[in-house]
């Protein structure tokens, strides 16, 4: 870790990613301050998982970054070789995947898998230190009787416990930034609450910055400081979490929130939904990708990708949305989503 604390521990600038001839990420900007928790939400195909893979250099065959850069602690990591990336991954930038069963090796004990992660960045670490640190890590994610559990195999752990092990591995080397890709999607709701609580405590006590990638708007609302809404490979709106849920400025964010069956919503009013389907990335419409499904679209929306328009919350921080009519959406947001029930 660097001695100084840069203003931006993590930054993505104009990132573009293609698989073959198809562009999946079309210029993504994302920035994290130390200790900040940012949610990236979007529906399937929006590019949110590609973003996770791209920043970690894990795109695999066929996928490549065509332009833009990713920097961690002020250092550009986009041009690094696999060897160099190995020194960054796990130490500066770490990842928690969705599925804890396939991410753990079934034939190795939990202890040896945590030990492996520790030794990767600490070659000379003694056996005793590895054992001691592993016990600390497991208990920090709320696994009881960690000494005994280290000798067990993944199948002896429940889903929630496996996800805690993955988190322990991800934070083994005190990363500055944690990318969590749908970390609780495979879990039941009471288990999800436990795991999110563990994550929240760790992040707070160690000052880790988090990018939480998820489709679950409720999880984002509870965990994140800021939310980025993705659509067709671009971030179309970025705002403080509370502000976004209170008053979205992009028509897509607004429609997405309106389609939620929020707790306490009156049964008599039908839910709103978004007509059509997200565009195929192979044949994007010109201009704003959401325009063909947007109730507010005008002819000029099809002309070019709109410049982000800033909107200003009274007393709050300025926000932006990539929409020609963002100011209008923001100003005319009447039925504040789900709010005002019985208050």
């Amino acid at each position: 870790m660097t001695g100084t604390t840069p203003e931006r521990v993590f930054a993505v600038d104009g990132l573009r990613v293609s698989y073959g001839d198809t562009e999946i990420l079309r210029g993504v900007d994302l920035m994290l301050a130390p200790g900040e928790k940012v949610g990236v939400v979007g529906e399937s195909g929006s590019g949110k998982s590609t973003l996770a893979l791209a920043v970690l250099g894990l795109l695999g065959a066929g996928g490549r970054i065509t332009s833009g850069r990713v920097s961690v602690l002020g250092r550009d990591v986009t041009g690094l070789s696999d060897r160099e990336l190995d020194r960054v991954r796990g130490r500066d930038l770490s990842l928690v995947f969705q599925d804890p069963l396939t991410s753990l090796d079934p034939v190795k004990t939990i202890g040896s898998q945590i030990g492996e992660a520790l030794r990767r960045h600490n070659r000379g670490m003694s056996k005793r230190d590895v054992a001691k640190r592993s016990v600390e890590l497991l208990s920090s994610v709320g696994v009881s009787a960690p000494e005994r559990r280290l000798a067990q195999y993944p199948h002896e752990f429940s889903g929630g416990m496996r996800q805690r092990v993955l988190i322990a591995i991800a934070i083994a080397n005190d990363p500055a930034v944690l990318i969590a890709d749908e970390p609780t999607t495979a879990l039941d709701v009471t288990t999800q609450a436990q795991v999110m609580e563990v994550l929240e405590d760790l992040v707070a006590s160690r000052g880790i910055s988090v990018v939480l990638i998820t489709h679950d708007l409720g999880v984002v609302a509870e965990f994140c400081d800021r939310v980025c809404v993705m659509y067709a490979g671009r971030i179309v709106e970025s705002a403080g979490a509370a502000e976004l849920f209170d008053r979205p400025a992009h028509p897509y964010s607004r429609a997405l929130l309106a389609s939620l069956a929020l707790p306490g919503r009156s049964r008599s009013e039908p839910l709103e939904w978004i007509p059509g389907a997200p565009p195929a990335m192979t044949s994007l419409p010109p201009g704003c990708a959401f325009a063909p499904r947007c109730a507010m679209a005008e002819p000029r929306c099809a002309e070019a990708i709109p410049e982000p328009e800033a909107v200003f919350a009274a007393g709050g921080s300025p926000r932006w949305a990539e929409c020609l009519r963002a100011g209008e959406v923001y100003d005319t947001h009447n039925g504040r989503v789900g709010a005002d029930h019985g208050a």
């Binding site: 889903g159 609450a193 609302a221 509870e222 979490a241 509370a242 707790p263 306490g264 789900g338 709010a339």
Partner: peptide
């Protein structure tokens, strides 16, 4: 269950699974 309307409430957390 997460509730976007009430992000700050105090949850009852169950132990175990």
């Amino acid at each position: 269950a997460p509730d976007p309307r009430r992000p700050d409430r105090k949850r009852i957390l169950l132990e175990g699974e």
